[in-house]
Design a protein around this nucleic acid. Structure first.
Ligand SMILES: [Mn+2]
Ligand SMILES: [Mn+2]
Ligand SMILES: [Mn+2]
Ligand SMILES: [Mn+2]
Lengths: 137, 137
DNA sequence: AAGCAAAGTTAGCCTTGGCTAAATCCTGTC
DNA sequence: GACAGGATTTAGCCAAGGCTAACTTTGCTT
């Protein structure tokens, strides 16, 4: 149970903090894309309800997504993604589905698979994601 | 590809946010316990080096751990855990080891297993953890 | 025993991502 | 075409978790 090299260990924690910085954006664009696909539009109230936060919080977060070029800036209009936002949404959705499928094949119940995937998905290297895809019950 | 029930979806995101609130504390007590076990003491500089942050950040975080009764409050002295801190460290270490073992059996390389486990471990339900323990290559 | 370097703390700042309350915009109904 | 109510934004607050710079304490070395 020897301790890891300090620099190596630091790189791991730095990676986790980096993942946390991008995960809100990933979940937002993914949900906006899903809502547009399923309902034709994505409204601030939908996001607030589905994230479990207030509409004020959604507005704050959307300001950052607009600042970062992921969401179109059209005040009071239905939300839509930029090309960069669509690309991020597609990648997030694909990764999300890989994780869900893997957990189900591992024998986890659907409800728990959906629950854990929402956090898990942001902390997977490409290598681990490939291993999850390759895994068959 | 139907959208989940709004309340259900909100509960998932709320769970992720809850996990994020406790994960820094879990990683701190785990590392303090590891350092004490391996080196006889845990110093602020060790934590800063291994987390990849400044000693000022460590001092801030430790103030919260002391406030929450996980770390002994003895300014300028080597760090030690309270009973609650030791309990949290043991649980965190055990869970961390389960995740590492699982990723290795899944075929992930040791370096990537260690990397991904550091973030992953905070987003696993008891059921998923059991499935990971039960999984054999 | 003094002094200096390292360790630790404190002060003050920032961003993210929460909140409530208040203002503003939009829309359907009459 | 007014206007009420719903949707959205804005203002102002907070805690967590980062940072740098300055200060204090400790402990080693001579
Ligand atoms: Mn997610
Ligand atoms: Mn997702
Ligand atoms: Mn961790
Ligand atoms: Mn996380």
């Amino acid at each position: 149970m020897a301790l890891p090299d300090p620099g190596e260990q630091a790189r791991r924690f730095i990676k986790v903090r980096e993942a946390h910085r991008s995960e809100v954006q990933q979940d937002y664009v993914e949900l906006i894309a899903d809502l547009v696909a399923e309902q034709g539009e994505a409204r601030v109230t939908d996001l607030a309800e589905r994230f479990g936060v207030t509409t004020a919080t959604v507005a704050n977060t959307l300001a950052r997504l607009k600042r970062d070029g992921l969401v179109e800036d059209r005040p009071y209009r239905s939300l839509s993604l930029t090309a960069a936002g669509v690309a991020m949404a597609d990648a997030s959705r694909r990764r999300h589905d890989i994780v869900i499928g893997f957990l189900l094949r591992l024998g986890v119940s659907p409800a728990v698979a959906e629950l854990d995937a929402e956090g898990l998905e942001h902390h997977l290297s490409a290598e681990t994601l490939r291993a999850m895809e390759a895994f068959r019950g």
